[in-house]
């Protein structure tokens, strides 16, 4: 059994402008000690998907369908208090993109770290401080015994992110969710953080769900990768397999449009257009409006994930032998949850 199993997750936002189908039938699983990358452009719903795991969806958002099983426990059925007490921080922790706003500027880094430790374990305050110094040392902050008493603004951007990671590690979680933790950082700083994630996974045997838009980053950190487009997972595979044999036209176009400093390309031919709004997504396959392989059926049939290789799935009619699927309509789903 996998450590985390997300099945057919749908998270919608009920806004005055309409129902935003941010996450619409997403499934993935993460084994113990494994790191999964979730890749997609902005608006693909990757952040919402991982926040749904932690129960961090706020009004007007709601998980309308699907299940999130962590170590066999159904997280969607837990109350807010149970989630806070039993899951967040001690079983699953999360690292956000913007460390500066996640750290409270009026407390020292140490006191915030100690608070998390005291809150979630039965350590005494003095033991918590020792542990805090140890953690800061683990995440590569120099002179941790001195820097623990500094305020967040005295840390550089990279160190703030390291402090956030220390906080996430504080209670030895079994799963760390990293939501674009290096997007705001310089590449030189990012390189260090990526190495840190690798190290954490090795030494702590922690599972990692790493959300990013950068395939290069995924390659550094992740064993497996799920590609999301407009609220759905279009392809999942071990990273190398995905890079070498991308099956879904979206994945192919994504790989095609990456500019890297190591290749000499005179002309990149990226896919055009932009992602449609999640308020009124296209029917059938959501990528069809930009898909070079789109055929008539793509309008009517919602493709399901099909096995296309060894632990490699893609949701595209190109690889789908079976006949049409019955997908619940939006009305049916929302009615269900209103009951």
């Amino acid at each position: 059994m996998s450590l985390l199993e997300v099945e057919n997750l749908r998270t919608y936002f009920f806004t005055p402008a309409g129902i935003v189908q941010a996450v619409d039938g997403v499934s993935f699983e993460v084994d113990a000690g494994e790191s999964l990358g979730i890749v997609g452009e902005s608006g693909a719903g990757k952040s919402v998907a991982v926040k749904s795991i932690m129960g961090l969806i706020r009004d007007p958002g709601r998980i309308v369908e699907g299940s999130v099983r962590f170590d066999g426990r159904e997280l969607t059925e837990l109350s807010e208090a149970e989630l806070r007490r039993e899951i967040r921080g001690n079983e699953i922790s999360i690292v956000f993109q913007d460390a500066m706003s996640a750290l409270n500027p009026v407390f020292t880094v140490g006191s915030q770290l100690e608070e998390v430790i005291v809150e979630n374990t039965d350590r005494s305050p003095s033991a918590a401080r020792e542990r805090a110094i140890e953690l800061l040392d683990d995440v590569g902050i120099p002179n941790p015994d001195r820097r623990i008493d500094e305020y967040p603004h005295q840390y550089s951007g990279g160190m703030q992110q390291r402090a956030m990671i220390a906080m996430a590690l504080a209670c030895d979680p079994r799963l760390i969710i990293a939501d674009e933790p290096t997007t705001a950082l310089d590449v030189t700083i990012q390189a260090g953080i990526l190495e840190l994630f690798d190290e954490i996974q090795e030494t702590h045997d922690t599972s990692i769900v790493y959300v990013t838009h950068d395939l290069g980053v995924v390659r550094e950190v992740c064993d497996r990768v799920s590609v999301m487009y407009l609220g759905r997972v279009v392809e999942s595979a071990p990273y190398e397999e995905l890079y070498r044999y991308p099956k879904h036209p979206y994945t192919q176009s994504l790989l095609n449009s990456v500019v890297t400093p190591d290749e000499i390309l005179d002309e990149i031919n990226p896919i055009g257009g932009t992602m449609p709004s999640a308020v009124s997504p296209p029917s059938g396959c959501r990528f069809r409006t930009r898909c070079p392989e789109a055929v008539e059926e793509c309008v009517h049939v919602t493709p399901r994930a099909r096995q296309v290789g060894d632990s490699h799935t893609a949701a595209c009619l190109l690889y789908d032998e079976s006949n049409s699927h019955e997908e619940p309509t939006l009305r049916e789903i929302t009615n269900q949850t209103n009951d």
Binding site: K247, Q252, P292, V295, E297, L318, N323
Partner: peptide, 21 residues
């Protein structure tokens, strides 16, 4: 170009027209 052009495809199956309606 690199292998990431849409030429590699599972068992050569292309869009199958007329299969579904």
């Amino acid at each position: 170009l690199a292998p990431d052009t849409p030429t590699t495809r599972a068992d050569g199956s292309g869009p199958q027209e007329g299969d579904r309606s």
